[in-house]
């Protein structure tokens, strides 16, 4: 199937749940397994939380934007913010690296996103913002489930 959507919202923590659920509904027609849903949601959740917390410091007015495309059983997504930006992307992506240890951040966000997606890329400019792109291919829809 083919589908496309864009979702944007202001930077408040409540909207992480909104993003997670909206994206889950978006991929439902692919009839994913519970495990695939959970992996996909986790990627979205980590990227959106980063945009809200690190990008905008939960300012309640700047926009986080998600764009997603379904092409057959592959989902391509971008999560973007126009916030603080990342100083050193390579370092930021290292396991356990966090600039906010005092906030109980684990520093595992990018590591989790990488392990649950097929490919992931990050672009960022200090003071301009951050774009996270990823792809995830789902197991093909079976005939039995298609018929229901």
């Amino acid at each position: 199937m083919k589908n496309e959507m864009t979702l944007s919202f202001v930077a408040i923590e409540e909207n992480e749940a909104l993003a997670r659920m909206a994206m889950t509904c978006f991929i439902t027609p692919l009839d994913p397994t519970i495990e695939e849903i959970s992996e996909f949601k986790t990627i979205v959740s980590e990227a959106v939380t980063n945009a809200i917390i690190h990008g905008y410091e939960c300012d309640g007015k700047s926009q986080v934007t998600l764009h997603a495309v379904i092409d057959d059983n592959k989902v391509s997504m971008t999560i973007s913010d126009e916030g603080a930006g990342i100083f050193d992307i390579e370092q930021a992506m290292e396991p356990m690296f966090t600039t906010r240890p005092f906030m109980e951040r684990s520093g595992m966000g990018f590591t989790i996103m990488e392990s649950f997606s097929d490919r992931l890329s990050v672009e960022s400019v200090i003071g301009r913002g951050t774009v996270v792109k990823f792809e995830k291919t789902f197991s093909p829809v079976t005939e039995t489930s298609r018929m229901r």
Partner: peptide, 26 residues
């Protein structure tokens, strides 16, 4: 692993309900 529609069929609930509930499993 079963797909959500397979789980929904076994439990006799809608896919929407599975989505909501599986979110609580997080």
């Amino acid at each position: 692993s079963p797909s959500i529609s397979e789980v929904a069929a076994v439990l006799e609930v809608t896919v929407d309900e599975i989505i909501l509930a599986s979110d609580a499993l997080r």
